[in-house]
Amino acid sequence: MNSFGPRLAKLMRSRETSILLAFVAVVAVTTAVNPTFLFSPDGWRNLLANPSILIVLAVGEAFVIITKSVDLSVGSIMGLTAFLVGSVYIAWPTMPPVLAFVVGVAFGCALGFVNGGLVAVAKVPGMVITLGTLYAFRGVNIMWAGSRRINASELSPDFLAIGNAQILRLPLITIMAVLVLLGAAWYLRNMRSGREFYAIGSAPAAAELYGLPTRRRMLAAFMVSGAMAGLAGVLFAARYGTVASNAGSNYELQAIGAAVIGGVAIVGGSGTVIGAAFGALLLTTINSALPVLGIQSFWQRAVVGVLIIGAIVLDRVLAQRQKRRLVAERMTP
């Protein structure tokens, strides 16, 4: 059986470990420059709470990318859901917060069903379909909201409390994001249907010949992505309190970036949601660390770009090295 030694070596080599080390390094350097980055109640809370929304989005996005597709519409779904939840609160100010989550997740899931349905039935690449729905969902949002924005005063205090509540000094939304993450990770690792996402992404033609339900899984991946974007929308409304028609813009690119940085290969079939979540953690933290370090906002975007390209190049190099190693292994028995 597996012994401890090789397992530890594998853990140390994993992408998750290197991302986590990079995260620790960023936090350490920034804190050295400005101790309040970590050692103040606000700093601590922001460090944990800020990435939560992106973590949830990246988990959903990872499902789609693992299945060898991509979902560009998650930012629009998130914005539309946030606005919907706000509007429901205006109509029914005393709605229990739990219902807000149910509404948001169900609505996001429904929009994901639209994406997945079009991809699975029309057999058009996900990138094209979701590029369309990115604009379509955003368009609906703008048509509906116009220049109106939902303010914190229009939401129920119970709901807003969720955005700031802490349990044992851990922000509640962080706990939620982590629970969702662990659930997704467990599912993808341990369930038959979870493994099928990997199989389909690894070799779609083989999956078809094998008799795996490729269409159903494809649809499911987009529904999960939509549901996660819906959840992110609810969290967004609870944390920030104000929702305008542009809420969630550009989040789709961050979500894809986070997944890719975290080792979810853009060609499908490999990577983990844990990695994607760590990618989101690193991306958000770098974004908030750079201003503290006095780096101009122009450079902040460039850094993110370098990080994404670096991750993809690293993936490619590692994949080729592994391929060579695996071939060599079989040549010399």
Binding site: R192, R195, E196, G269, S270
Partner: peptide, 22 residues
């Protein structure tokens, strides 16, 4: 067994044998 093997390159040998009916 087809002319060309239909395996999933990213998955382990074990998973390839049992995919879908683990």
């Amino acid at each position: 067994i087809y002319q060309e093997p239909t395996l999933f390159p990213d998955l382990s040998v074990t998973e390839n044998v049992f995919m879908g009916r683990q």
